[in-house]
Design a protein around this nucleic acid. Structure first.
Lengths: 294, 294
DNA sequence: CAGAATGATGCGATTTAGGTATTATTATGC
DNA sequence: GCATAATAATACCTAAATCGCATCATTCTG
């Protein structure tokens, strides 16, 4: 059976006239007759009751008309969706991220993309960077927002999207709050309000390494699970905490933010994707992301 | 596009191997390759990512797989329904009836038919006999239960389904309740509890004719709209009413049923259908009806 | 009864689809 | 690292299907 036959059948059912239907189908009348006949043979059912002067649908024909219309409609819709997928206007975009990549810009980009490509479904997954890189390589993730610095020769393409120093938050009435900047040597003497090692070992060790560059060890104060709790303890004067510099835009009353005098730790987030996969969705997302930058 | 291509696509999507898929499709591998290629060309989309060793669905392919399955499923279901319609096991059966044709047997037959052919939809329409005959002739009604006596040479086939005399109902304590039968001459002197002329003029006049055979006129008592009301008046001793003889099977307490001495009025219901239409639904219905008779 | 309308049929040319044999490429094993 | 097996694509041929044109057959109309 051919879709053309179904289309012919639908047109003929509307016209109830072989000649006129054939005209609408840009074909001659005899092949249309044979097409319908072939369809009827295949279905083993007469779809039209016809003598040499009149054509009308049989009961079976009336039923099959509904079905044929439904089928053709669905097929046509599917073809349109496929075309949209080819343009990156439909489909599912899977994006990975690490916790610290969720910035204002990230959220705004998501919103813009959703506005511009409303038919695209975005699936967001939080994953550590190495897992994201593996997932992008094998294709189960389209795009990743990762901490890992990829080599320029890496099989994945990437661009830096965040590159900013970590700064510290202090209580307003803290003695160091008077200074312009704070030295790591001073910091090491002050209690660090931090999260427990088990929560994010990679980041935890990375901070330790930051101190270790200067042969220092942080002095640990309270361990808290959530950022908000950390800010409360800092505001209470129990020590300091670390955060990416742009996070202080949404600064809290009672806290002061200070840069660290020496080069210390930088938050570097890259957006990575697999150029080998040639996915229009990805290209569109990157475009929207870059627009947002400008 | 051919349905065969969709089926091939579905099988290949399941096997992800041209050779095995071709085997399942009872064809060779090269034509399957070409079929898929042709489908991809028509859709202007690659459905499979494949090198010479591996076959896997693209995102577009995964989407189209769902659609193709839905389409083929629907088409297959439609074909089955068409086949069932050809056997008279599916479709819509339109049956006309007149009020007095609704007997126990009628209802039981409907139930049997519905049990035996659960996929058939029965549409019942109350219509006077002449309209039913016209509707059956033009095909808008499959079967009619009519009062009209059709000639044997009539274009519609028919069988008698009810042929029974009208009898009368009387109050138990009515003087005539003692007699074996009642004469029309006696009846004409007794008030007839009847429905108003406007409710069913044909039947009303037919009853008048019954009396007119004997140069009589009924003596009209109360006019009531419903049978139940008539029975109440009869039980109250206000006169008699007419009813088909088998209706007294469901007789009411307080009422006595008497045959009429002279030939008077007979209820004759025929079941009529159009043999020219050759509808398996109709044949099946007639079969069930005849079974019920035996 | 003649003619117009209309669906079916016959026929030849073209296109399409399937089968077989072969090729090209890639993964695997020694 | 090379030979071999596996596997999808391609070439080529044959068979089938489809189309357009011409014609036929039937039926409705005046």
């Amino acid at each position: 059976m051919r879709t053309r036959q179904l289309k012919s059948f639908i047109v003929l059912a509307e016209e109830l006239h072989f000649g006129k239907a054939a005209e609408r189908l840009h074909m001659q009348q005899p092949p249309l007759s044979r097409q319908i006949k072939a369809l009827e043979n295949e279905l083993e059912v007469m779809l039209f009751k016809r003598n040499n002067r009149k054509v009308e649908l049989t009961e079976e024909g009336a039923f099959f008309l509904q079905e044929a219309k439904a089928i053709i409609t669905r097929l046509t819709a599917a073809q349109h969706t496929l075309k949209a997928m080819g343009n990156g206007e439909a489909g599912t975009l899977r994006i990975g991220f690490v916790d610290s990549s969720i910035t204002e810009r990230f959220v705004i980009t998501m919103g813009r993309f959703k506005d511009q490509y409303p038919k695209v479904i975005i699936e967001l997954e939080e994953k550590v960077s190495v897992e994201q890189v593996a997932a992008i390589g094998e294709g189960s993730l389209h795009i990743g927002f990762i901490r890992t610095q990829l080599a320029k020769t890496h099989e994945l393409s990437h661009i830096n999207v965040i590159n900013e120093p970590y700064i510290i938050a202090l209580a307003n009435n803290h003695p160091m709050a008077e200074q312009e900047t704070v030295s790591v040597y001073e910091l090491a003497k002050e209690p660090l309000i931090f999260f427990p090692h088990r929560k994010n070992p990679g980041f935890y060790n990375w901070v330790l390494n930051g101190f270790a560059q200067y042969d220092l060890m942080p002095k640990f104060g309270f361990e808290v699970e959530r950022d908000q709790a950390a800010e409360m303890f800092v505001a209470g004067g129990f020590g300091y905490t670390l955060l990416p510099s742009t996070s202080c835009r949404m600064g809290r009353r009672g806290l002061t933010y200070k840069r660290i005098q020496e080069p210390f730790l930088d938050l570097r987030i890259s957006m990575a994707w697999n150029p080998a996969h040639e996915c229009p969705l990805v290209n569109n997302f990157i475009d929207v992301f870059k627009q947002q930058a400008g």
